[in-house]
Design a protein around this nucleic acid. Structure first.
Lengths: 339, 339
DNA sequence: CTGTTAGCGCATTCAA
DNA sequence: TTGAATGCGCTAACAG
C-alpha cells in the first residue's frame, strides 16, 4: 500500500514547517494569504485528509459513538441503529457497531475495545448471557468512571446509568386488552425464558389485562420458547391441548408469524377461530397473510432518543452532572387483519 | 468523566520510567521479575488497558476493518455482515460499520472517514445513487494507492479491485427454469430499475431461460419497481392485464411477498393459479403462507469470503501482489410451497 | 536490568 | 507572518 500524504510531507515539499501547514489548512489568519493558498492548493491536489487517529489522540475526542447489540440480524436492532445513526450523523458523529452475539465474553471484549480510546460514548443493549449470569462488572466500571453510557431495550435493573426502554408492560397489557375486546376468551402467550426482562414485562402486562377482565390465566397457555430447540414444535403445543386457545399474544414478530402458520396448518381461520397479535417493529407483519396486528415498538424513535442521551452525556461538563434518566418509549396497537 | 489510567501514571505512581512499565506489561524478560510483577499487579488492580488509538498510531495498524453498506435494515446485508464478523473476529479484527443510505455523498464521506487511518481495509457494497451517477473516483483513489478494498454484491464493472458477487444471472436463469418446469407459461418478472446491476443480471438470466424454452418474453410482464412510489400498486399492474401471468419471479423477498399478497387478494390460489419465486437470504420466505420458494443467496458465505479477501490484501507484502479476484457465490433453488 | 530518546500525525503555545 | 517545541499514549532502539 502506497503511503498516505501527511502534513510533514506537504511541509517538506513546500519548504515550510509542519505547523505552518497545519495552520494554513484550517485557514488561520496567522498565516500569510499567499502561503496559505499555496498550501491549500497543494493539499487539495494531493487529496490530503488529516489522519483521524492522530486527531483523536491529540484532541482526546474521537467523534465516534460505540454501539453494542446482541444480534445484527434482528430487525428491531437495525431499526434502532438507524435511529441512532440519524441523530449521530447530524452532529458529525460516526458509529462503531459491534455485535455480542448474545455472548457475555464477546460483550466484555467489545466494551473494552471500544472504551479504550476508540469512542466518546457507548450505547448498549445487553447480551442475553450477561443478563442470565447477572454479571455486569464491565458496565459497572464504566459507570464508576462516568463514561458516557446509555442502555436501550435490554437493560439491567440494578445498574445505574441512562436507559431507554419500551413500555413493555403497557404494551403487553394493551395486547391482552385488544384480544379481549375482540371477544376472545382463551388467551395464550408465547414468550421468552424468564431471564429476558422484556419478555417478562410484556407477560406481566398481559396478565394484568386478563386479571382486570376476570379472564383465567391458564398456565398451559404460556409457552416459553427456548430458541435452542425447534420453535415451531414448542408453539405447536398450544394446538395439542384439549381446549385450544382462541387468542395468542406473541412477544415478537417471528413467534407470532409461526403461531399464525400453526393455526392455518390446522385449518383454523384467522381471526375467526384464532386471533394473533405480535410485538415488533418489523417487516414481516405487513407481509403475512393475513397481515398481522402488532404492538408497534418504534425502534427508530428509540434510537433517536438513545443517541440524544449519549450526546448529552458526552457534552456534559464535569460539574453539572444530570441525574440518570430512564426514558420510556410508548407502544401502540397497529390493528391489521389477524385480530 | 474521570481520566483513564495510562502508562505514564503507572510509571509515576511506581517510581519507574514509562518504558519500563511498557515492557513489564508485555512480560519482557528485560525487566526484573520483582519490578515486573509489581507493575503487573498494579496495572491489574487499576484495570489498565492500553489506549487503542495510541497503539494504532504507533503501529500503523488498527486491527479494524471498515464496512460500508447501503442499508442496515436489509436482512441480506446483515447476513453478510455476520459472515464478515465471524472471519474478522477469528483474526482479532473488529468491524466499523457505516451506512451510506444509498446516497453518494454519504458514501464518499464514509470512505474518507474510514480510510484516514481508522481501518486497515475496507469492504463496500456500493450505494444505488453512486451506481446511477457512475461516479467512482472515491474508490478509484483507493485502488490507485493499493488500499485493501473488496466490493461485494453491488459492484462497479469498470472499477478494478477484488469483488465477491452472487451469480445473479444463473440465479435468474434457474428461477425461470423452475417456473417453467412447474408448467407455467406466462412468466412475469418483478425487478429493479436498470441501474441496479443485480436486478439486471437476474433479469438477463431469467430471459435466457425463457428464450431456451421458447417462452415469449412479454414486455407487459416486466415490472421495474421504483421504491419511491407505492410498491404494491406497481406490482398490482400485473393483475390488471387482460392475460394475467401464471408465474412470477421477483428479484427480492419483499417484492415476492407482496406479489403473493396481490395474488391472494384476487382470490387466486398459490401455486395453482400463480407460482411465485423470490431471490433472497431472508427471514420472510419461511413465514409467509404459503411458504415461499426462493433462490438462496448465501449472504453469510459471501461475508466469509469477502472478509478472507480483505485480510489477504491486508497481509499482502508490497512485492508479491496478487491479481484482482472476482469470487462468484453460487445460488440454489430452495423449493417451498409457493411453486 | 532500567531509563532516555524519538517518533507515529497532528495542533497549540510560545518564541522569533 | 512563520517556526520550534511540546505532548496526546505508546513502543522500540539505544544508552547506561
Amino acid at each position: 500500500m502506497s503511503k498516505k500524504i501527511n502534513i510533514k510531507i506537504i511541509a517538506a515539499e513546500l519548504g515550510v514547517s509542519p505547523s505552518t501547514v497545519s495552520k494554513a489548512l484550517k485557514d488561520s489568519h496567522e498565516i500569510g494569504r499567499e502561503t496559505r493558498e499555496k498550501i491549500q492548493a497543494f493539499a487539495k491536489l494531493y487529496n490530503y485528509k488529516p489522519n483521524s487517529l492522530a486527531l483523536s489522540l491529540r484532541n482526546q475526542k474521537t467523534m465516534n459513538i460505540g454501539v453494542i447489540i446482541p444480534q445484527i440480524t434482528h430487525h428491531f436492532f437495525t431499526r434502532v441503529i438507524s435511529g441512532i445513526e440519524s441523530v449521530a450523523n447530524q452532529k458529525d458523529y460516526n458509529l462503531m457497531i459491534c455485535v455480542s452475539k448474545d455472548l457475555h465474553e464477546k460483550e466484555v471484549k467489545n466494551v473494552e475495545m471500544l472504551t479504550n480510546g476508540s469512542v466518546d460514548g457507548l450505547i448498549v443493549s445487553i447480551a442475553n448471557e450477561t443478563l442470565e449470569k447477572g454479571e455486569f462488572s464491565h458496565f459497572q466500571r464504566l459507570v464508576d468512571e462516568d463514561f458516557p453510557l446509555v442502555f436501550f431495550d435490554r437493560v439491567a435493573p440494578n445498574l445505574k446509568g441512562d436507559k431507554v426502554i419500551v413500555d413493555d408492560e403497557t404494551g403487553g397489557y394493551n395486547a391482552g386488552k385488544h384480544l379481549i375486546e375482540k371477544g376472545k376468551n382463551r388467551l395464550a402467550i408465547i414468550t421468552t425464558p424468564e431471564h429476558v426482562t422484556v419478555g417478562v414485562m410484556r407477560e406481566r402486562g398481559f396478565k394484568k389485562a386478563l386479571d382486570e377482565q376476570n379472564k383465567y390465566y391458564n398456565q398451559n397457555y404460556v409457552i416459553r420458547v427456548e430458541e435452542k430447540f425447534d420453535i415451531e414444535k414448542q408453539i405447536d403445543q398450544l394446538f395439542q391441548l384439549k381446549e385450544i386457545p382462541d387468542g395468542i399474544f406473541a412477544v415478537n414478530e417471528t413467534y407470532a408469524a409461526i403461531a399464525m402458520k400453526c393455526t392455518m396448518k390446522r385449518g383454523m381461520q384467522i381471526p375467526r377461530d384464532m386471533a394473533v397479535i405480535g410485538f415488533t417493529d418489523g417487516v414481516i407483519s405487513k407481509l403475512t397473510t393475513p397481515t398481522m396486528t402488532t404492538i408497534a415498538q418504534h425502534g427508530y424513535n428509540m434510537g433517536n432518543k438513545t443517541a440524544e442521551l449519549v450526546l448529552q452525556r458526552i457534552d456534559e461538563k464535569e460539574n453539572e452532572k444530570l441525574p440518570y434518566q430512564t426514558v420510556v418509549i410508548q407502544t401502540n396497537v397497529v390493528e391489521r387483519e389477524s385480530t
